[in-house]
Amino acid sequence: MRTVVPGTRCSLFLVLVTLLVFSNLSNAQMSASLLGSVVDVQGNPLSGVTLKLLYQGNVTREIEVSTDDAGKFSRLGLQQGSYEVTAQKDGFDVETMSFSLNVGRRALLTLTLLPEGARRMAELARSEEVEDPRESAVRAALQAGAAASLAGDHQEAITLFKLAVQTLPECHECHYRLGRTYAQLEDYTNAEVALERVLEIDPEYAPAYRTLAVVYSAQQRFDEAAAVRARAAELTSAS
């Protein structure tokens, strides 16, 4: 006859529950979370804003979230590292922000969206000089390219960013957006060329170093990736 020791089943159950709890705690401690809100210039919450999180780590990863009726958004279980978030809503200018996440920590972000065209109008109001028509064309190309990229049409974005580069060859932001889009398409050769051009124009442009680290890592050039990632961290901490 099989003998069951009193309390054995209960003890086993408690052990399993304890292991499950510790496993969940361990997973939570190995990831990071993001909480945020999006408001207009009056501080009113904006619902239905599309936010795309671009992870700048060893692999290019894009995560999409949106704001709720209270203008809030959140994402749990994110990998630590550097991110770039782009917020878009009809009737407003596209807003981009860079941030970092640390293991076991929660980041809080607040993005303010300007009415569509407001940034451009403010720039005109501050300037008494007649704007170079090339700059106006480049700005339009960058905005259209950003919108195409958010819509997932990366080839159209590349066409527009190339147009911006051809119009204003010394525009480091134009080369950067072109290189980043190539990286999203895993065209690492062209991405590297564009990003290195960025650093020729502006050797202290940290986002280019971060994206270049992604490109190098994807090609298993880990020493080079570590070097440019360290340079990006150095520039970020100094700013």
Rank of each mutant, 00 (worst) to 15 (best):
S11G: 15
Q166P: 13
E186H: 13
V59I: 12
T60N: 12
A227Y: 09
S26D: 13
Y205K: 07
E204A: 10
S237G: 06
A226W: 11
G36V: 00
A164R: 02
M1Y: 05
L14Q: 15
K72T: 12
E116I: 07
Q219F: 01
N58T: 04
Y216P: 00
S217F: 06
E62A: 07
A144E: 12
S31T: 07
A125D: 01
A232L: 04
L114Q: 07
Y209N: 05
T50F: 02
R75N: 08
A194F: 00
R119G: 13
F161N: 08
Q184D: 14
E200T: 14
V39H: 02
Y205F: 06
L14E: 15
L195H: 01
A151D: 13
L160K: 07
A194P: 00
S26L: 08
G7Q: 10
G152C: 02
A194R: 00
V228A: 09
G43C: 08
D202E: 11
S23M: 07
V49D: 05
A118H: 09
P207I: 14
E186P: 04
P6M: 10
P45K: 14
A147W: 03
F92D: 04
L111A: 05
C174S: 06
Q220E: 15
E196S: 15
S149L: 02
I158A: 11
S47H: 07
A148M: 00
L78E: 03
S33F: 01
D153G: 03
D223K: 11
Y188M: 11
P169S: 12
T67I: 04
